[in-house]
Amino acid sequence: MNLLGKIFTVLILLASVALMIIAMFVYSTHRNWQDAYNQLNTKFQAATAANANAEAQYLAQISQLKSEQSAAVQDVAKLETERNLIVSQNQAIQKEVDELRRDQAQSVALVKATEENINRLTQEVTGLRDSIRVAQQERDEQFHTTLKATSELHSVGGQLQQLEERSSQIVAQLADVTAKATEGGVDLQGEFVPRVRGKVSKLRRSTEGLLIEITVGADDGIRPGQNIEIFRGDRYLGRAEIMRADPDRAVGRILREFQQGQIQENDDVATKLRVG
C-alpha cells in the first residue's frame, strides 16, 4: 500500500468516526414531532382562547372606559357649570366686598369726622358750661345781693318807721318823766336800765363765738354793749353781751367765762340793773 492509500484510509477512518458521532448526536436529540405538534397545538388553542377572552375583556373594559369617560365628561361639564356658577357668585361676593370696603371706608371717615365734631362740641359745651356756671354764680350773687339789699331796705324802712314812732313816744314819755322827776327832785344825770325779761329764740355759731337771738329789743330798752343774764327756771346758765339791738329783737354774744351750762332755745333772759 502506498502513501496515498494510507491517507485515504485515515481519512475514511476519520469520516467514519465523524459520522458515528453525528449519528449518536442525532439519536440523542431525536424527538417525537407528533407529540410536540400536539402539545404546541394545545398551547396554541389555549393561547387563542386566552386571547379571545382577553379581547372580550379588553372590549368590555373599552366599553366600561367609554361609559366612565362619558360619565366623566358629564361630571366635568357639571363641574364646569358649577365652577362657572361659583365664579359668578365669587365675582358677585367680591363686588359686594368691594362695596362693603368702600362703605366701611366712608363709615370710618364719617366716624372720624363725627368724633372730631363731638370733641369740638364737647369742648364748646364744656366752655359754655363753665360760662353758664360763672354766669349763674354771678346771677345768684347778684340775686342774693339784691334780695339782701331789698330785705335790708324793707327792714330798715320798717325799723325807721318804728323808730320814728317810738322816738315820738319816747320824747313824749321823756318829757313827761322829766317833768315828773323834776317835780319830785330826782337826779336825771345817772343811767337807768329797766328790768326786762325775754326768751332765747335762736342760737348760731360764728367767728365771734356762740351767738343768741332774744325776743326783746331796743323798744324794750335793750342797748348794744349791755349784758343780759341767761337762766332756765332756777338754774343760772351764763351771761351774754348785746352786739346789735333791733326794735323787737337783739343779738348777743355768749361770754364763755360766765357760762355755767348748755344754753338752748326758749331759755329765759333778763337784764341787769346797770351795764356790766
Rank of each mutant, 00 (worst) to 15 (best):
L147S: 02
E165D: 07
I170M: 11
V177L: 14
E99A: 14
R139K: 07
V108M: 09
D140G: 03
D176I: 13
E116N: 13
A113S: 14
R120Y: 09
A179S: 11
E138G: 04
A172S: 12
F192I: 09
D130K: 11
L188Y: 13
E141I: 07
A172Q: 11
R129Q: 08
V108Y: 12
L210T: 11
S168L: 12
K180Y: 12
T207I: 08
G127Q: 09
I132A: 07
T145L: 04
L174W: 05
A113E: 12
Q169G: 06
S151F: 00
G127N: 11
L163T: 06
L153P: 00
Q189T: 15
V186T: 12
V125P: 01
R139I: 06
Q173W: 15
S201K: 14
R133N: 08
L128T: 08
R102P: 04
Q159T: 05
R102W: 05
L203W: 04
H144Q: 03
E115Q: 14
E116V: 15
T145K: 06
S201R: 13
L128S: 06
G157S: 05
R129L: 06
E213Y: 01
A109E: 08
S201L: 15
L163Q: 06
L211E: 00
T122A: 10
T146D: 02
K180H: 12
A149G: 01
R166F: 02
L128I: 10
L153W: 01
L100S: 10
A105H: 08
V125T: 11
Q162F: 07
T146G: 02
F143W: 03
E191H: 10
I212S: 00
E191K: 15
T207V: 08
R205G: 06
Q104N: 13
R205Q: 08
E152C: 00
D140M: 03
T178A: 10
Q173F: 14
D140E: 03
V193M: 11
L203G: 01
R102M: 08
A175D: 09
T182Q: 10
L100H: 06
L153C: 01
T146H: 04
K148I: 02
V108Q: 10
K112W: 01
G184L: 15
N117I: 09
A172H: 11
R102S: 13
L210P: 01
L153F: 02
Q173R: 15
E115L: 15
S107D: 06
A105F: 03
A179M: 11
L100D: 06
T114F: 14
T150P: 00
T178V: 12
R133M: 05
Q106C: 07
L211V: 04
H144W: 04
E116F: 03
H154Y: 04
G158I: 02
I214S: 02
E164W: 01
K180R: 14
L121C: 05
R197F: 10
Q159R: 09
E183V: 13
Q136I: 07
A179T: 13
S155I: 06
E99S: 14
R195F: 14
V134R: 06
T182R: 13
V134P: 00
T215I: 09
E124H: 04
I132P: 00
T126W: 04
T146K: 04
R195P: 07
T114D: 09
T114W: 15
S107T: 12
F192Y: 12
E124N: 07
Q142L: 05
A105D: 11
E165S: 07
Q104R: 14
Q137W: 00
S206E: 05
I132L: 10
L100T: 08
E213M: 09
K148V: 02
R195S: 14
G190N: 13
R204S: 07
